[in-house]
Design a protein around this nucleic acid. Structure first.
Length: 569
RNA sequence: GCGCCUGUAGCUCAGUGGAUAGAGCAACGGCCUCCGAAGCCGUUGGUCGGACGUUCGAUUCGUCUCAGGCGCGCCA
């Protein structure tokens, strides 16, 4: 794709080549200019700092080089003005014709506008949410879901081959505790003496779920009771049924949040791989670590020497009772990701797991994978606020602490946008009062309103048989764009760079801010500039093209955030 | 004690080496005979927690420090 910023960079590269040819700067310096968009519009549409950045190599005062570059750039008919200023910036302004022509580019590319092939050839596995299947998804999971899903969409738009995956921890201690908790509740419902384990699950959903399983699995339960070793068989039954039910909840919640996972990977498959899967068991992976000399025995347990790779302390992989830790299967899981051909692994974890990062990185390194290939994003804590007060995060008493409750309360679009308005690593205060407002001040509606307004204009234009033709010089001849139109066109042209930056940073929130800014410029334009004017068809056509381009970019951007673009509100 | 995250306007936050640090909310004052007022315009509001360093240039990078949150298990 050849976007506007790329074209400007190209022009500056050519200018640098001419400066070298003219002897204004030494030849063969390998100057790679980059452009940025100055915050202050007085400095023009684009600004370039190559004269300062390469001042040591050119051995010329940056200001002199910048001015010489500006003199050459001014000869380009696409450039309205160029100047070399103060410390050594080259500031340039594109001609209105070039800026407005971007609208045609956008309309022509449609849903592809903003796409890039910069990430082509990269295969990346993005794992997120991966909550223990022992209870309903919570708010942090919702945040991770919004971020992960949007990030996957953005990376794909940049040409990266992304697969999304949810790791189901169905094999460990927590799964066992869930089974024991369910079984205890079941026994209690029969009037038998039973206690939920000390560290088990106490939530009300456990008793309900136990009842559900008892009803649905009556025959299997009876068979288990009648057979040998009924206690173990019942426990296994309740554990498996419980996990399966709760995974179903998770799948349902995420689906209603429009979050797509390409795969749900079960930890159990690392213990007993399905036939033909080719999965290496965690035991084999631990042996691999052993063979590489990264394990040692102490106090009857088997330890991974993660300190050799920068961890604070060494970590147990096999406990003295012979069972394995979560780390053991998790290492095997990540090894399996590489084995499937993914060269880059990105995980989104909850805030309570940040201490876990060094040991996983250590394990990946110990097994020969480059440390930079495995990255972890921490979806930081979410605090709900209502009436200015923090909402107590208790699983009891109707406070919507679950993801399903939140989505039900404020809606998918609002929930996603609120999560995506913050840097993933930043703690998030979620203002429920603001999120609930359906008519005022809610930033989601602000963006969607811009979209709906445009749809309204376009449907009116259709009624009046007004179409927007290409914005060529002829179409512009009778219409000089207002400042608000140029500002809007400029912002539209920044969309591809915004997406590229989000992809590099693995942070979708820049896109949310971009869309809000774009909506602001549109609303401003709308207030000042009338689009449909029977008495001025040239202006109408030009503005229709602009407005169509805005609609397209809003649509593309909202779609990457997983937020709807309603034609009417 | 060690580690991670965070300190930017009254509040919630953008701004990952550039030029006069921005937006939303809140407060105050304006704008609909005209494409959707869920909108627009204006005013008020800042020692970018602090110190030192690197740099032509630091809110941004480094070191130290103060404050808040979280984590530090043969749980996951």
């Amino acid at each position: 794709m050849n976007y506007l910023a790329d074209q400007v960079v190209e022009k500056i590269k050519n200018t640098v080549a001419r400066l070298e040819a003219d002897g204004a700067i030494p030849a063969g310096l390998d100057i790679r200019p980059e452009v940025e968009r100055p915050a202050n519009p007085a400095f023009g549409d684009f600004s370039c700092n190559f004269a300062m950045r390469y001042a040591k190599q050119t051995k010329k005062p940056p200001l002199v080089v910048a001015q010489a570059a500006a003199d050459l750039l001014r000869q380009d008919p696409d450039i309205e003005s160029a100047e070399g200023v103060k410390p050594g910036f080259v500031n340039l302004r594109l001609s209105p014709r070039v800026l407005m022509a971007e609208c045609d580019h956008i309309r022509r590319l449609g849903a592809d506008y903003g796409r890039s092939d910069a990430g082509r050839g990269r295969r990346l596995l993005l794992e997120f949410v991966s909550a223990n299947p022992t209870g309903p998804l919570n708010i942090v999971s919702a945040r991770a879901a919004a971020v992960g899903d949007s990030l996957a969409r953005i990376l794909r738009s940049q040409g990266v081959d992304v697969a999304t995956e949810y790791y189901v921890n169905d094999a460990g201690n927590q799964a066992q505790l869930l089974g024991a908790s369910l079984l205890a509740r079941y026994r209690q419902s029969l009037g038998e003496a039973a206690e939920v384990p000390e560290e088990g699950y106490q939530g009300e959903y456990v008793a309900e779920l136990a009842g559900e399983i008892a009803r649905e699995q009556a025959d299997a339960i009876q068979a288990a009771r009648a057979g040998q070793n009924p206690q173990a068989r019942l426990l296994a039954l309740f554990r498996e049924q419980g996990i399966s039910k709760i995974v179903g909840w998770h799948q349902r919640d995420l689906q209603s949040f429009e979050v797509q996972f390409d795969a749900w990977f079960r930890e159990q498959h690392l213990v007993t791989p399905p036939d033909g899967s080719g999965i290496r068991t965690f035991g084999e992976v631990i042996e691999d670590l052993q063979a590489r000399g990264h394990l040692f025995e102490q106090d009857g347990a088997l330890w991974f020497r993660s300190t050799a790779f920068g961890d604070d302390k060494d970590r147990v992989v096999k406990k003295s009772d012979g069972s394995f830790t979560y780390l053991a299967t998790d290492i095997a899981y990540h090894v399996h990701k590489y084995a499937r051909g993914y060269a880059e692994l990105v995980d989104i974890w909850g805030p309570d797991h940040h201490g876990y990062i060094p040991r996983m990185k250590a394990a990946m390194q110990a097994l020969g994978h480059p440390p930079e290939a495995f990255r972890v994003l921490i979806a930081q804590q979410v605090n709900l606020f209502e009436a200015g007060q923090p909402v107590a995060m208790s699983k009891r008493a109707g406070k919507f602490v679950t993801m399903a409750d939140l989505v039900r309360e404020v809606g998918r679009d609002v929930a996603r946008f609120f999560f995506l308005m913050r840097a993933t690593s930043a703690h998030l205060d979620f203002d429920l009062d603001l999120a609930r407002k359906h008519t005022e001040d809610n930033p989601v509606y602000y963006v969607q309103y811009a979209y709906a307004r445009i749809c309204s204009i376009l449907s009116k234009a259709a009624d009046e048989n007004l179409a927007a033709p290409a914005v060529d010089q002829a179409a512009l001849a009778g219409h000089a764009p207002a400042a608000e139109e140029l500002a809007l066109a400029r912002e539209l042209a920044a969309f591809p760079e915004t997406l590229a930056a989000c992809a590099v940073a693995l942070e979708p929130h820049g896109l949310a801010f971009y869309l809000r800014d774009l909506a602001t410029l549109f609303h401003r334009f709308y207030t000042v500039c009338r689009v449909l004017d029977a008495g001025d068809p040239e202006t109408s056509r030009s503005r229709l093209a602009l407005v169509q381009a805005v609609r397209q970019v809003l649509q593309n951007g909202l779609s990457l955030l997983g937020i709807s673009a309603p034609q009417t509100m």
